[in-house]
Design a protein around this nucleic acid. Structure first.
Lengths: 143, 143
DNA sequence: GTACTACTTGGAGTATGCTCAAAGTCAAGC
DNA sequence: GCTTGACTTTGAGCATACTCCAAGTAGTAC
């Protein structure tokens, strides 16, 4: 048990608890199961879903992929490979590596835009100090 | 004329050219105009849209905001302020600053996920070299 | 005059990703 | 036994952001 697994019991006995631990809503968890993004969850005798700690960790990792721009369909593909076991390791490797590259490009774009915004903000500060200077086209949102 | 404005003629005489210069499709430009995200564009005598260089730059800046996670509705709000002129400067400043903060948090999250992915990739490499070691739970996608 | 191309408008349709509602089951508390 | 609450399934509805289509116009080429 390390910091990653902290706060997750060995078995999670309700969809409500699973929702709390993953940050999803109960409806979303059911929806994901319906579209095959999550495997059909184990049920208790009364039909209610329950989850192992590993399953919760799996969902958390998926949510990380989602939060970084992976679509549900791509995530479904990744999970399909996972279910195929070790034979799919190299394909999974390729997939994750590609996603990592995508993230790197996204970070670069975000930083670029931060620069543009900083430029605009400094321009706004100048305008505030020294209002109404006649620099035509200057207020057009540029770049 | 600096590197930012390079390749943009003083006036852009067709929606097709505007699309090429902004990376949008013609349909998307019309759609944005329809929902009030872009002002009703000037028309030539035959009714066709034309754009000034500043307007193209404006669209490019908007696309940057969009590419970094701003919704069309928020962009519409920002443009509304821009149309109000200098009196809205401080509100626009606040808005852009907030977006900049959001970008910063997004970058942090992306980097965090890069770390997790790197960890998983190195785990995959280990598995490839030394297959089928019995470490239960180890293949569950963690974090 | 006819064809062709590039545009125009308005409206309908689509993809993604949820979100909600209806109707029913099951177990616990009173 | 009845209510309450947490769940179940199925299916419909919704928000965002396009994307496509039909019908029409305007200008040029032959």
């Amino acid at each position: 048990m390390n910091f990653i697994t902290e706060g997750i019991p060995e078995t999670v006995t309700s969809i409500r608890e699973a929702a709390e631990l993953t940050g999803l809503t109960e409806d979303t968890i059911r929806y994901y199961e319906r579209i095959g993004l999550l495997p059909y969850a184990d049920r208790k005798p009364n039909g209610h879903r329950h989850y192992s700690k590993d399953q919760i960790l799996g969902i958390r990792f998926l949510m990380r992929l989602k939060a970084t721009g992976m679509t549900l369909e791509e995530m479904r593909r990744y999970l399909e490979l996972t279910r195929q076991g070790d034979s799919s390791l190299s394909e999974r490797y390729t997939l994750l590596e590609a996603h990592n590259d995508r993230i790197a490009r996204e970070i670069a774009r975000l930083q670029e835009t931060q620069n543009v915004i900083q430029y605009k903000l400094s321009h706004f500060r100048e305008l505030a100090e020294n209002p109404h200077q006649d620099t035509p086209g200057c207020e057009s949102p540029d770049s």
